[in-house]
Computed example of a mutant assay.
Amino acid sequence: MTEVEVLLRAHAPQVLTALVRHHGGFEACEDAVQEALLAAATQWPVEGVPANPRGWLIRVASRRRTELWRNETARRRREETVALLEPPEVEPLPEVDDTLTLLLLCCHPALTPASQVALTLRAVGGLTTGEIARAFLVPEATIGQRISRAKQRIKSTGAEFRLPPPDERPARVAAVLRVLYLIFNEGYTATSGPALHRVELTAEAIRLARQLHARLPDDGEVAGLLALMLLTDARRPSRARPDGSLVPLAEQDRSRWDRAAIAEGVALVSTALTTTRVGQYQLQAAIAAVHDEAARAEDTDWAQILGLYDLLDRVAPGPMVTLNRVVAVAMVYGPRVALDQLDRAEADPALAGHHRVHAVRAHLLDLAGEPEAAREQYRLAAKRTLSVPEQRYLEMRAAG
């Protein structure tokens, strides 16, 4: 990414919030900002970056927004007034609220999760519709429709560009965290396609989580999510073989892990766990920290991990938590105990037939000394995953 692209991506949400606050109308303001970004991408490499990039973008976008406003039939009576308006150089509200307010708007509860993700990446992340579509391996028209519907939905609900009242903020922040978590997970382990990672998504999720943490430094779950992302992404350099196939955690070259990211993540989650109410992202980060702090796979403190999964299962139960806990049970109490628990867990409709159930059962059968049965489960898992790197790994294990 060039210096100009980095600048544009960093300033885009601030410019959008300035326009929305001054002019109103999220959709028209977003269109005006996109045109300003396009103008900057064309002019700045030739003419040089202006001394005040944010001010330049606000001026250009605000002029374009004024032009759009003039063309709106319902607002023709305001044309003369609008023509006299000067774009704001400095916003009256502190910038600290801007990105948080925009994130909360993009994750409005009236939107579907898919629309929340797409709108967040477009409006706050600064990704183009094409970039988002490529990251999720869907047609650009599909993402465009999601964004368009999301903006129309926000408009129809009468949502205003302001922070929600205090009693609504926890739920709204929780929605933002869920969206950032979804973005990161899709980037770290792509659910389909030829690539194991989509670095543009993990990087964007971490960047936005950092911004959110800067604005809500005392929120333990915000810190926990950022820690989880850092501790997980630290392993990325050793997660894939040269052919792109998956390398499981126990087989990874830990000397290639990002120790600076691990140290930052451990510090974040340690502080959050001791100073704030415990939540699901903190617990997941704590589990990741136990893995990352083990010098060798055999040094992993599985008893501590199982205890953390027990807590997580009470705080935020879910099918993937259940599966991961079963693996921890196997490492503490043996594969037979874990296989019994896996059989019971598979009764959950969310897990029935899931490729990861077969993959976990294969792993447990391997540990139990049943290689033939394990290979059959690896073959079933390989057939059911849509991820090519995972498929390669599972087929390799099935081949023995």
Rank of each mutant, 00 (worst) to 15 (best):
S156H: 13
R178T: 15
P170W: 07
Y281I: 05
P88N: 02
L93Q: 12
R77N: 02
T66S: 09
I132A: 11
T300V: 15
M396Q: 09
A303Y: 00
E72C: 08
A359L: 01
L228F: 15
R375M: 05
R64F: 01
L339I: 11
L225R: 05
V82D: 07
E376F: 06
Q280P: 14
L308V: 08
A195T: 07
P166W: 00
L273Q: 13
S270Q: 08
E160M: 06
E27L: 00
G48H: 07
A83Q: 05
A261P: 00
L37P: 01
L306S: 08
P349I: 12
S245N: 12
T322Y: 04
E376A: 13
T99P: 13
E372Y: 12
L394H: 04
P164F: 04
Y309K: 11
Q34D: 13
H291K: 01
T276P: 12
R215G: 08
P194E: 15
H355N: 13
R65S: 06
R75A: 09
Y281W: 14
A362Y: 02
V46G: 01
R236L: 07
L380F: 03
R59K: 03
Q280R: 14
A135M: 04
A338C: 13
E251R: 15
L226M: 03
I262H: 08
R76M: 10
A240F: 01
T120C: 14
T73M: 09
D258S: 13
R314K: 13
V60Y: 06
L312E: 04
A250R: 14
P166Q: 03
R397D: 00
I183M: 03
R356I: 12
R146H: 13
T275W: 05
R169M: 11
Q284H: 09
V321K: 06
R356S: 12
T202S: 05
G55Y: 01
R122P: 14
I143G: 08
V124L: 09
T120K: 05
P217L: 06
A267P: 10
A345G: 05
R21K: 05
R210L: 02
L308S: 07
P194N: 11
I287V: 15
P319Y: 04
R153Y: 02
H22Y: 11
G224N: 06
L127G: 05
V329G: 06
L231E: 00
L339V: 03
A159I: 00
R361W: 07
V329T: 12
E395G: 06
A209D: 15
G318P: 13
E35T: 10
L342M: 04
V20R: 03
D243T: 12
H355W: 11
D292N: 10
R77G: 10
A83I: 04
